[in-house]
């Protein structure tokens, strides 16, 4: 539903057609001056169009130049290129990596120098079939292995971690 003002504007501009036009003109029958008013509105439009020609933009090049200066002044300076920042980041990570490697080497060297090592096994494994299949040590730090000494031609039961064994326990099955 349109207001009278909307219909009248559309009527002045020739934007009404068909049934809408017929119905509105029927409504306007009560306003005999409406046609004159529409013609006056159209005359006004012609007057405005005929006398509203804007002057040419004087000094058009200066307009562009001045605008360019304003844009330059009001545009924040662009950021520095990203590449140097990346290079700086890469340099920092590289230094950190080398420092990490240095400290790893240092820690490894300290470990080997300060932690006592178990002496290397002086004896070669036995050539005979002698092997500890199962053991039940009272201390979990004690382990049992067999070794063969070719010089003496003997097989030795090696109990690693056992500091002391009571004499009554020395009897072997």
């Amino acid at each position: 539903m349109k207001t009278f003002e909307e219909c009248f504007t559309a009527w002045v501009d020739g934007q009404l057609s068909g049934e809408a036009l017929a119905a509105f003109e029927k409504e306007l029958a009560a306003h005999p001056e409406a046609a004159a008013d529409r013609d006056a509105a159209r005359q006004l439009g012609k007057l405005l169009r005929a006398h509203s020609t804007a002057p040419a933009l004087s000094n058009a090049d200066f307009f562009s130049l001045q605008l360019q200066r304003r844009i330059d002044a009001e545009t924040p300076p662009r950021r520095q290129p990203v590449k140097p920042e990346r290079e700086a980041v890469v340099s920092i990570f590289s230094r950190l990596a080398w420092a990490g490697v240095f400290f790893l080497v240092l820690a490894g060297a300290s470990f080997f120098l300060t932690i006592p090592h178990r002496p290397a096994q002086p004896l070669a494994p036995s050539n005979y079939f002698a092997q500890v299949v199962e053991s039940w040590p009272s201390d979990p730090g004690i382990s049992a292995t067999t070794v063969y000494n070719p010089e003496d031609n003997v097989t030795v039961l090696w109990l690693d971690g056992l500091d002391y064994m009571p004499s009554e326990q020395l009897a072997l099955k």
Binding site: K2, F4, A10, G14, S17
Partner: peptide
């Protein structure tokens, strides 16, 4: 009141 039917007579 009438519905306004718009035309495109005024390009």
């Amino acid at each position: 009141m009438n519905e306004v039917a718009m035309t495109s007579s005024n390009p």
